[in-house]
Design a protein around this nucleic acid. Structure first.
Length: 470
RNA sequence: GGCGAGGUAGCAAAGUGGUAAUGCACUGGUCUGCAAAACCGGUAUGCGCGGGUUCAAUUCCCGCCCUCGCCUCCA
C-alpha cells in the first residue's frame, strides 16, 4: 500500500512511511474537557480515526497519542463556576467525551495523556528552554518563549511578517496587562503565574506558583510518548497558528529532534452554509442529534462524506441522506449473507478484492467521498445472486474491508427494526388488514389514510403487514 | 491587508487534457387491489465569470467575482 497524505508544511501530498520503519507514530491535539464536544470537533477526530484505520488496514501498526487538555483558562474558570474541583469537573467531561467517541466508532488512542498529570514534564521543558536562551521569566513569575530566538518561527503557517499584524492587534486593544511583561508581543506563555481567580488550581515551579501555558503540554507529552521525532501531527485547521507553530518552536528548541515530520490538518465543518456558533443556535453536539432520532453512525457518515481538506456543509438533509446510504450498504451486506457468508468476517481475512478501486482511492490522500462512490459503484455492478461462492466470499470480505477502513458499522435494516406500536395504532392496522383480507378496498384505504394522518405507514407483505412510523 | 481552502446537477460530493463517479431527492418501469419496500432504468451538451494555450479544457495559464477559515490560546 502506498498511502499519501497532504502535508501542511510542504503543501504537498507525501507518502506515509514510518520513520522507524515499523510503526507509524502520530499525535493528535485532543479536546479541552470543559463541556460537550460538538460535531465540528468530531469532524477532526473522525478524520484522524479514518487516517489511523487506513494506515492499519494497509498493514502498518500505529502508535496513536491524543491528549486531554484538562488544565487551562476554560477548565479552571468553568470548574470554579460549577463549584467543583478541577479534577472532578474534567473527569465528568472526559467521560462524556469518551462515550461520544465510542458511539462514533472512534478507535481509542493507545495513549491519552492528561496535561495536568504531566506538569513536571512541562516544567523540565521550560527549564531546558531557559537554559538554551529560548525563554525568560518575567517579573510576575510567568515564563515566556522568546520567538525572536527561533528563526524558523512561522514556517508552518507561512505568516512571515508577524510584526505588522501584532501592531494591528495592539491598536485594536487586544493587549492585556499580562502582555506588558513580555519582551515582545509575539512571545507566548510557557508558564502562567498564579492569579487569584485560579483558586486552588496552581502548582509549584522554579518561577513560583502557577500553571503551564496551553501550547506546552503537547510538546512535553509528544516527547514523552513519541520521542523527539515522530511521523504525523494532526489537528483542526485553526490550530496551525498559533498552537502548532508554538509547539514546533518549543520542541525544536528544547530537543535535538525535528518534532513532527508530517502535518495533517482537517478543515472546519460548516452548518447550514455558515460557521457554527452558539449565538446562531447551530452548534450541535452528538447528544443533540441523537435526541432528534439520528444514530451516531449516521453522524459519522456525514462527517466523512466530504474530503477532509474541503469545507463540509452539515445539514439535516445530509443526515437523512446518510441514513439511506447506510441502508443501501446494509441491504447489500444482507444479500451476501443470504448467499452463506459468515456474519462477521475475521479481520485477518479482510482484503479489498472487488473493492480494490475504492481502496486505492481511499489511500490517495484519504479520499473518502471518492472511495464511497467507488464502493457504491461496485455494489451497483454486482448482483449477489449471480456470483459464484468464491466471488460472494471475496465480495463480502472486500465490503467489510472498506467498512472497517472507514469505521462504518452497518445499522439494522429499517424494515426489520423493532418498533413500539401504540395499542390504538395496532388496532387500526389490524382492522385494515382484515378489511383487506375481505377485499373491502374502500375500508382498507380509508383506514390506511387514517393511520397516515396519525403518522404511521402500513407495509404489506405476503402473509402479513408491518406498521412503521412515517 | 497577509496566508490558506473552496465555487461541479434540486441538495451533497468525487474526478479528469478528449467531451462528467457516487449518495439523497425527483421521475419512468417491474411488483402490488392500491401502496410501501425492493429491483431495473432516466435525470448536468454542463463543471463561478471573462480571456488565453491546445486538434481538444470543466481539467493548464492569466485576470476578475463570490463564499469560508486563520492572522495569539477556537477541532
Amino acid at each position: 500500500m502506498a498511502l499519501t497524505l497532504h502535508d501542511t508544511l510542504t503543501r504537498q501530498s507525501r507518502t506515509i512511511q514510518p520513520l522507524d520503519g515499523r510503526t507509524l507514530r502520530f499525535y493528535c491535539c485532543g479536546p479541552t474537557v470543559y463541556g460537550p464536544a460538538h460535531i465540528g470537533n468530531f469532524r477532526t477526530f473522525v478524520a484522524q480515526d479514518v487516517f489511523r484505520r487506513v494506515v492499519e488496514m494497509g498493514g502498518l501498526p500505529t502508535l496513536h497519542v491524543r491528549n486531554l487538555t484538562d488544565v487551562d483558562d476554560k477548565t479552571i474558570r468553568d470548574s470554579q463556576k460549577a463549584g467543583q474541583s478541577l479534577g472532578d469537573f474534567t473527569r465528568f467531561w472526559t467521560e462524556k467525551f469518551h462515550a461520544d467517541c465510542a458511539a462514533l466508532n472512534l478507535l481509542p488512542p493507545h495513549v491519552e495523556p492528561s496535561a495536568v498529570a504531566h506538569i513536571p514534564h512541562q516544567i523540565r521543558m521550560i527549564e531546558t528552554l531557559i537554559q538554551r536562551g529560548h525563554a525568560y521569566a518575567s517579573a510576575d513569575g510567568s515564563v515566556y518563549f522568546k520567538v525572536a530566538s527561533y528563526p524558523d518561527y512561522g514556517r508552518l503557517s507561512h505568516l512571515e511578517d508577524r510584526e505588522l499584524k501584532l501592531g494591528a492587534s495592539t491598536t485594536a486593544g487586544a493587549m492585556d496587562s499580562d502582555e506588558y511583561s513580555k519582551d515582545s508581543l509575539a512571545d507566548f506563555a510557557l508558564w502562567k503565574a498564579r492569579r487569584p481567580e485560579d483558586g486552588p488550581n496552581h502548582w509549584p515551579s522554579p518561577w513560583g506558583d502557577g500553571r503551564p501555558g496551553w501550547h506546552l503540554e503537547c510538546s512535553a507529552m509528544s516527547l514523552e510518548y513519541l520521542g523527539e521525532d515522530f511521523d504525523v501531527h494532526s489537528g483542526g485547521i485553526d490550530l496551525i497558528f498559533p498552537h502548532h507553530e508554538n509547539e514546533i518552536a518549543q520542541s525544536c528548541c528544547s530537543t535535538h529532534g525535528k518534532f513532527a515530520h508530517h502535518w495533517f490538518h482537517v478543515t472546519h465543518l460548516m452548518v447550514d452554509g455558515g460557521k457554527m456558533s452558539k449565538s446562531l443556535g447551530n452548534l450541535y453536539t452528538l447528544e443533540d442529534l441523537q435526541k432528534r432520532g439520528y444514530h451516531p453512525a449516521e453522524v459519522r457518515y456525514v462527517l466523512i462524506s466530504g474530503h477532509y481538506r474541503a469545507p463540509l456543509n452539515f445539514t439535516f438533509h445530509s443526515l437523512d441522506a446518510a441514513r439511506q446510504a447506510l441502508q443501501k450498504l446494509a441491504r447489500f451486506d444482507k444479500a451476501l449473507l443470504e448467499r452463506g457468508c459468515a456474519a462477521s468476517p475475521a479481520r485477518g481475512d479482510l482484503a479489498p478484492g472487488p473493492f480494490a478501486d475504492a481502496w486505492k482511492t481511499l489511500t490517495d490522500d484519504l479520499n473518502v467521498p471518492g472511495a464511497l462512490g467507488a464502493v457504491f459503484g461496485a455494489i451497483n455492478r454486482t448482483k449477489p445472486a449471480a456470483l459464484t461462492e468464491a466471488e460472494v466470499l471475496a465480495c463480502h470480505r472486500g465490503l467489510h474491508f472498506m467498512l472497517e477502513a472507514l469505521g462504518l458499522r452497518l445499522p439494522p435494516i429499517l424494515d426489520e427494526a423493532a418498533v413500539e406500536v401504540p395499542a390504538e395504532i395496532a388496532t387500526l392496522a389490524e382492522q385494515r388488514w382484515n378489511a383487506k383480507q375481505s377485499k373491502d378496498w374502500a375500508a382498507a384505504d380509508a383506514l390506511r389514510k387514517e393511520l397516515d394522518a396519525l403518522g404511521w405507514i402500513i407495509k404489506d407483505g405476503k402473509d402479513g403487514y408491518q406498521v412503521m412510523p412515517k
